[in-house]
Design a protein around this nucleic acid. Structure first.
Length: 266
DNA sequence: GTGATAACCTGCTCGC
DNA sequence: TGCGAGCAGGTTATCA
């Protein structure tokens, strides 16, 4: 499930290889989620950026392709995929290569928008600061969450306090900051610890090339290695690395959530 | 405006 | 072995 570190890993690999290439043809799945991909035909890629979990492919006509990988999306650049069963969009480039968007569950999407106009994508439009942005710190996080009555984890997943956090890194950051995911209010001190934890787990995951649990693949089809560094997510029933208490699992706002009842008291 | 919930999807796991 | 149910989860739409 690509979150910020996974999308950024893909972006870093994609930008030098795709910039300057021209889209000469495109084919898509008939779903409205993907048909925008055809609108890029005839344009040239000027840059590849990222905001939150969205890839932003800049084009030379003042437009962008906005690509969200959803749960199972992956991009490949090179020859067309041998197995086209789950190909949702593919672009033929002027140098003979093919950019392929493969997405088994079809949770991903492709949009063609004016550069910077994300009004049709509310999550992107309203996304908070990046975790590596100097403006993201404890005071900002506390200010963003302290008036809400929602669970702190649910607020993180909303992308509004900070961009790019998904279920894996939300669990990891809350564990690192020793904050219970079901809390509906946190102190300023906890907000500072949580902001630092979010930045730390994101930096670590990025350095490890992302987390591959099931579906995530980088641009070359390889896997990340951050799954070997996880302390909390997916480890329910195992002992906490900090206090040896058995980690618990619950469903919080329809999201599986792992936490340590000792380190992260309610 | 805010919060809660359903829908979208399909491969995988588990129990019978 | 085969079948069905349940689960995984990011974003959007809808309703209260």
């Amino acid at each position: 499930m690509p979150e910020l570190p996974e999308v950024e890993t893909i972006r870093r690999a994609l930008e030098p290889r795709l910039t300057g290439a021209r889209f000469v043809a495109a084919e898509t799945h008939p779903s409205d989620k993907f048909t925008d991909a055809r609108l890029a035909v005839g344009t040239t890629v000027t840059n590849v950026g990222r905001r939150a979990k969205f890839l932003l492919v800049g084009l030379d006509n003042d437009h962008e392709l906005v690509i969200h990988l959803g749960m199972t999306g992956a991009l490949y650049l090179g020859d067309p995929l041998a197995n086209e069963k789950y190909v949702r969009a593919s672009w033929e480039l002027d140098d003979g290569r093919t950019l392929t968007f493969d997405d088994t569950r079809r949770f991903g999407r492709v949009r063609y928008v004016r550069t910077g106009d994300y009004s049709s994508m509310p999550t992107l439009h309203n996304a908070g600061p990046e975790p590596f942005d100097p403006s993201f710190d404890g005071p900002h996080l506390w200010q963003a969450v302290h008036n809400s009555k929602r669970h702190i984890k649910t607020q993180l997943l909303s992308q509004k306090p900070v961009a790019g956090v998904g279920n894996i890194y939300a669990d990891e950051a809350l564990w690192l900051a020793q904050v219970n995911p079901a809390k509906r209010s946190i102190t300023k001190a906890q907000a500072t610890m949580l902001a630092e934890a979010i930045t730390e787990v994101m930096e670590s995951a990025l350095a490890n090339g992302g987390t591959t649990l099931r579906d995530y693949k980088n641009l070359d089809g390889g896997e990340g290695s951050n799954q070997f560094q996880l302390h909390c997510y997916g480890r329910s029933g195992s002992q906490c690395d900090r206090c040896a208490t058995v980690l618990r699992l619950r469903v919080l706002d329809a999201r599986s959530t792992t936490w340590c009842p000792q380190c992260q008291p309610a």
